[in-house]
Design a protein around this nucleic acid. Sequence first.
DNA 1: TGATTGATGAGCT
DNA 2: GCTCATCAATCAG
Length: 197
Amino acid sequence: MNFKLATPDFFNRNPADVARELLGAKLIRRWHEIEIEGRIVETEAYLSQNDPASHSFIGTRPRNRWMFGPPGTLYVYTIHRRFCLNAVTEAVGIGSAVLIRAVEPLNHFETLKTNRQREKIHELTTGPGKLCEALQINLSHNGTSLCDRNDLWIELPNTALPTNDELVATPRIGISKAKELPLRFILKGNSFLSRKS
DNA sequence: TGATTGATGAGCT
DNA sequence: GCTCATCAATCAG
């Protein structure tokens, strides 16, 4: 299967569309001379306005400033001593993003196990905090572009998008506001989701 | 039944 | 307003 580097144009669209189309894409991390690849299997969209669950809802703050950057910008934030990885969507100043919640490891399993201090493959990247630890992503990556082959980037498949049979929209996880919105997108039946269906 | 995780929330400058 | 760690919910054994 052929993959191509994601472009700012891909991210400069509605976050729900971007979140849906990121399923099946590859997240690639260059780390210590190796390139760790993961297949994105779970995402969540966070809107700019009328979405109280979004970090951008309260306006620009030092913590969320990267979320208002150009499309394709990396936005990393801390929660409970862990990191979560987001891809900024839409134009500068909008403040929408897609949270990457889970990936399926494709290579360098031993490195991931070492980073996570876990042996079981299903405990490596099946959650936003987990995958950031496995891929060694932290606040220093804030503001970098996912559209350049630098430390971390995304490559999209040239093949057709997953069909509606494979792709499911569900309510987002772990939030206290706007819980009912179906803005979480998963690859149906994939064993690397953060939670069982 | 024990461990682990997590778009939070308390507490201080 | 900003830093930084809780404990309830959920998952693994």
